[in-house]
Amino acid sequence: MKRLRASLLIAPSAALIFLFIVLPYITVLVMSFRAPAEGQPYGEGFSLEGYTHFFNESYYAMSLPQTMFLGLLTTLVCLVLAYPVALHIAFASKRWRGFLYGIVLSPLLVGIVVRSYGWTILLGNSGVINSTLRNMGLIQKPLPLMYNDFGVVLALAHVFLPFMVLPLLSALQAMDPAITQAARSLGASRFTIFRRVTFPVSMPGVQSGCILVFVLAISSYVTPALVGGMRVKTTTLLVVDALIDQFQWPFGSAMALILAVSAGIVVLIFARLTRMKWT
């Protein structure tokens, strides 16, 4: 009876997940094995063409390491930028904390398209930064700030910073402040305390923040499209290109699945490397 009631409670979310995640994935999986066709999304019968095409054409195949590289770099940049912020907020007074929270969350208040265009205004060849530097006579030719990995990682890190700060913050706030005092009383310097106590104890936050940012970064479309200007080829861009512009549904589906599985593998390896026996 109790079990029945419990399953009734999860029924709505289970139905949602089934309808909008499991079923589409099955559809995508089936579609990825359909034969390609001219003049229509897919043809009769089944084939492995979608997969072989991806791995045989380096134009497509190389997008995968490129996407993973961007994802990992964005994650690393977010972690390095977010950690001091999280530390600061965790030890800030209550009155400040709300204000700082607001600042951290502020990138999320602006729509993704607007924010990405904002970056193009800043980073473009005749953008704010380049024209300022040129007017000051510091540079002759504009610095390549966008349409490359640098611009994309910068813009992605900006958007996803809150997703790193918040898990770090909750991990740091869950930490007993007495343990840093204990470490000091045992003779540890501040740096040693950070390296051997604070950081390892905040590992659950590091782990979830990194996974969150990585997954969001590799699957993002608008920012790489606008700031990368189609010159930074991520798999996600190619998936949309195949599905919508080229109308090759089997190929697009195959790429989407390859990306999802690759992301899953990276996340699994990361989780394995950062496994914590103590939680």
Partner: peptide, 21 residues
């Protein structure tokens, strides 16, 4: 002197053990 230079042993109400060790 800084706490780490005072040569004290301290026991806290919350025990303050290092959870990851």
């Amino acid at each position: 002197r800084l706490p780490e230079q005072r040569d004290i042993g301290m026991v806290f109400q919350s025990y303050a053990l290092f959870p990851h060790m």
